[in-house]
Design a protein around this nucleic acid. Structure first.
Lengths: 185, 185
DNA sequence: TTCACTGTACTGAACGTTCGGTATAATGTC
DNA sequence: GACATTATACCGAACGTTCAGTACAGTGAA
């Protein structure tokens, strides 16, 4: 009955919320304890590696989400515009329509960069690959598709930051709305 | 008044380097002490308000840089493309051609967001205003110019993050190179 | 002498982490 | 079924360290 995995997974949402909003250095064990409802010692029962272990767990969950999103997009019947629209919907939802920052970007700051940059790089490349795959499937040249997918992630990351800095989530929503046509055009 | 020792301003570069790379929560007084070569007592002599005081000082310097950059761009003889190219050069230089993050973005994470978001918002709006001013001066509709300037900052911020995450500064350089034509087109 | 400046020493609080131990429930043995 | 064993989940308290911040005695130039 006692399954380890589901238990660990159930702490992913609060951990994600913390790390994406406060960054690695800004998240303390006290905050984690409060957010999860677990004592500090209990946290080390589930995550023997401490904060690093927690980040790894969340990143693994995000990686799974990325894969699901990629598969989901390609499973949609329709042209690239439709498929990218579908992917965009999932992305907007994941970022609470521009109200919550990206954890991958948050991890690029401070001491966490040295530890997690390679993994973040791999995840972003996989993300770009998923977008490029949709474009290539609609007949676009592969090199161009890769360039466009990089532009897409630049737009997403930039829009998230600007939405936060300007205190206006609409900046992100507008960017996401234009993105599919921008990529196909 | 009498400046026997280097003024407050002389500590801005190392402070900027710290805050942009580590974020507010990731910067400790020990790191600041090491980077500036000042003891803790000296730091509190120059910045009675502690870390917050240091951030304010750096932000004031960045605000001045933004104003200088805006004036500099409009002072250039030539069309909008030339002027934006000039502004882009200054921006690329300020970010070490994509190797260093943006402090304004870094301050949007963690506990610093509550304290500095309004000021960061004001600075970004002024920045957008500078870009829009160049576009309007070349005959562009003001509403369109404002939209384009927002896109510009989205691209800059996004490219900085992606360049860091992908460990490839060229991502930023490419983005900055395309930006002028993208804005005028 | 005055005063800006700095090094040393110190504080209470918070940090990430570990230890010792409890409560519960599933499992193995008879 | 009864009992001992084991594994899991959890916690209070404390570890040593580092944190931001303060007090104060000096130093050196005007």
């Amino acid at each position: 009955m006692a399954k380890q995995t589901p238990a660990k997974q159930s702490y992913v949402p609060p951990l994600l919320d913390l790390f994406r909003q406060y960054g690695y250095d800004g998240v303390s064990l006290s905050k984690i304890s409060e957010a999860t409802g677990l004592g500090k010692a209990s946290l080390y029962h589930h995550f023997p590696g401490g904060k690093d272990d927690m980040v790894e767990t969340v990143l693994a969950a995000l990686d799974q989400w990325l894969q699901d999103t990629a598969v989901d997009a390609l499973a949609v019947e329709g042209d690239a515009l439709t498929r990218l629209g579908r992917m965009g919907d999932r992305i907007q939802s994941a970022y609470s329509h521009g109200e919550k920052p990206c954890m991958l970007a948050a991890l690029m700051l401070g001491s966490a960069k040295d530890d997690f940059q390679p993994q973040v790089q791999r995840m972003l490349q996989r993300w770009m690959g998923a977008i490029a795959a949709v474009l290539v499937a609609s007949g676009m040249d592969e090199t161009l598709a890769q360039e466009r997918s990089e532009d897409a992630l630049i737009a997403i990351q930039g829009a998230l930051i600007m939405a936060r800095a300007l205190d206006d989530p609409a900046v992100f929503e507008r960017t996401m709305q234009r993105l599919p046509e921008q990529l196909c055009g």
